[in-house]
Amino acid sequence: MKNRLKVLRAERDWSQADLAERLEVSRQSVNAIETGKYDPSLPLAFKLARLFETAIETIFTEEG
């Protein structure tokens, strides 16, 4: 799954560590999600959406 986390993060001038702290996860988790190596669960995806005040589908899109 593709995502716009890096862009959304950059818009707020947050580092991966900043986002990790807000999500209460490790920086490695943010990196794995951001690089598309790990797809988050629905609860974590909703948490991201709430944090960026947007809909899940504007953060994550299907590949291909």
């Binding site: 996860v25 490790s26 988790s29 794995a32 999600i33 790990y38 988050p40 669960s41």
Partner: peptide, 8 residues
């Protein structure tokens, strides 16, 4: 463990 990626 609340960090699902680490748990995984």
């Amino acid at each position: 463990e609340t960090d699902e990626f680490q748990r995984n």
